[in-house]
Amino acid sequence: MASITLGGNPATTVGELPNSGNKAPGFTLTKSDLSNSSLEDYKGSKVVLNIFPSVDTGTCAKSIREFNKEAAGLENTKVLCISKDLPFAQARFCGAEGIENVEMLSDYKTGQFGKDYGVEFADSAFETLHSRAVVVLDKEGTVKYTEQVSETADEPNYQAALEALNNA
């Protein structure tokens, strides 16, 4: 269980992020067109999991924009932006913002991703939503970098994630 804060107030997650060097837990999430997407779909590519509570918050929106900008220049890399937002909200956001270089995925159906990756809030006003975190995977799906952002309102360390990609 990770101890983090939400607006300065204590909060916890249901678990911990996967350990570096381990295989990432598999997942099945929902795309904007309501089709399924699994971790297996990205095998052979480096992957950034940009995990956050909702596209409708300022910091989450900023992280999507920042990773979208950075992803444009990354070779053989997929940036997956994951929340429990409905796919319709994710598609609306991307359309309004001109987001084209990241893939939006939703954990709204089962919430299993949030549990398996240890990012689901166990308490607080955001209970059952995802905390802000980044996980970088190499081409074989091995975890190379993780960051559980300690204050949910703060942005992730983009530079550290990008450096981990270069070394993946």
Rank of each mutant, 00 (worst) to 15 (best):
E70Y: 14
F126L: 15
K109I: 12
P53D: 12
T30H: 10
P10S: 13
D41I: 06
G95N: 15
K144A: 01
E97M: 08
D33K: 04
S32H: 08
V14L: 08
I4F: 10
G15L: 09
G8H: 03
V14K: 08
T152V: 14
S37R: 08
F67H: 06
L74F: 06
V48D: 06
Y42C: 04
G15D: 07
E16A: 14
T28W: 01
S124V: 09
H130M: 13
D85Y: 09
D33S: 09
A11D: 07
T110L: 09
G118V: 01
I4M: 12
Y158F: 13
V55A: 03
G7D: 07
N50A: 12
M104Q: 13
I64A: 01
Q90R: 09
T12F: 07
A125W: 09
G7E: 07
T59S: 15
V143H: 05
K115F: 07
T28I: 10
T128V: 13
K31Y: 12
A71M: 06
P25L: 05
N9R: 11
S38H: 05
T128N: 12
K43N: 09
R65W: 11
K62E: 15
K84V: 14
Y108P: 01
S124C: 12
L105K: 00
V135T: 05
V134Q: 05
G15N: 08
T128E: 14
N166I: 00
A133M: 11
S106V: 10
V47Q: 04
P18V: 04
V135C: 11
G26Y: 01
I82P: 02
A160N: 11
E155M: 14
L74H: 04
S45K: 14
L86G: 09
I82T: 06
V143M: 10
F27G: 01
V143S: 02
P53C: 14
P87E: 09
I4L: 15
F93M: 04
N68W: 08
E75K: 14
T59Q: 13
I51D: 00
T30R: 13
K69D: 13
D154A: 12
L39H: 08
E75W: 07
K69C: 08
F88Y: 13
A168C: 13
N76Y: 04
G7K: 09
